[in-house]
Write a protein that binds this DNA or RNA. Structure first.
Lengths: 189, 189
DNA sequence: TTATTAACTAAGCATATGCTTAGTTTTAGT
DNA sequence: ACTAAAACTAAGCATATGCTTAGTTAATAA
């Protein structure tokens, strides 16, 4: 019994994510969220408890979205370094051309959340650990390597991926492509 | 005639920089600045005009500080890739061990300033262009290279430098060192 | 139909924000 | 000593913030 929700939770969460992604945690006000999510403040608090909880849910949602829209090819068993390149270039150009709200929300979280809340830290660290595993597989499928070198190479690519969210904000598309090609090519040699 | 300033402008600017560096632009309130700079709000506004102007002055001050404390060896005529490594490792460990307020203020500016004010953009871009020139010289002093490769290599190292401000926040000191060693060694090979 | 429950609306609360202003103190030139 | 100019103090202003609450509407179980 009781009235039924007038909105779809997954849908408003997606909108909240876009709102946070664009502006970051602090600069996104509850009035912004109200407008972007299309529901009243009361409904936000009744459903998500607090702005902070909503941010964490948004960050998890971001991870799923990135998985769906960018990491698919890297999840295939036979992925290789060309898939790494494609992923990095696609993501970097999305940033440079303003196709996505504001570079990488994971990186933004590392940068913004001052006290670096342990829950957020956990989400971020796991995100990059999973990315590292995908990169390691791609390397293994491209060049024969010792485990030690494989790990070093994967860590290296994670670092490159992180650099992209800054690099892509201040460099031209052609520089971005050169940068990624150069970096990924360092693995095979 | 008129009363004389009770404070040293360079000194309070340094304190303002530390305040902004720690918390970022938005999260630093004028009350924070008042406390950290040790002067009244009126004096802040009388001397620096606005919070935004003060931030820009702080960012320039940051550049000079980084030059003094980290980039000295790279400015020498005979600097080489080992100096690049030393710089990156020193800076990265300063971040990881919390010796400096909050990773790189230039990178933070790229990430935080939403509309990306053109003045700030200019400061940031020039900062990384100067860093690139220092890296290029260091590469040239270490390995013989064509101009094209030299530029690629220097761009690559700038990217690595940018990645460090995120990487160092979520990785251990030994991982950070491995990452930097691995990355810089990719140049010589 | 009616009672109960939950989602809705909109107004409101305490506090924080960037910046200003009224009024006071200190300096230097006459 | 007197006056003008500039730096100081502290209070204040309009607005924005995260979150709550009083009151209304809608859905279901009896």
């Amino acid at each position: 019994m009781g009235r039924v929700k007038q909105f779809d939770e997954a849908e408003v969460l997606q909108r909240a994510m876009l709102s946070f992604w664009k502006r970051g945690y602090e600069k996104t006000t509850v009035r912004n969220l109200e407008h972007d999510m299309g529901i009243n403040q009361f409904s936000i608090y009744a459903t998500f408890k607090s702005k902070e909880q909503l941010y964490k849910r948004s960050l998890e949602n971001y991870q799923h979205q990135l998985d769906r829209e960018f990491l698919g090819p890297l999840r295939l068993a036979n992925s290789d370094l060309s898939d790494v390149k494609s992923f990095l270039i696609k993501f970097a150009l999305s940033i440079a051309q303003g196709k996505i709200p504001n570079s990488c929300m994971m990186v933004n979280s590392v940068r913004e959340i001052e006290h670096f809340d342990p829950v957020i830290r956990k989400i971020v660290v796991r995100f990059f650990d999973e990315m590292k595993a995908l990169f390691a597989k791609a390397i293994a499928n491209s060049v024969p390597m010792k485990d030690r070198s494989l790990d070093e190479g994967a860590e290296f690519l994670v670092g490159i991926a992180q650099s992209i969210s800054i690099y892509s904000k201040i460099k031209s598309p052609s520089q971005i492509k050169s940068y990624i090609n150069f970096a990924v090519d360092r693995i095979s040699n």
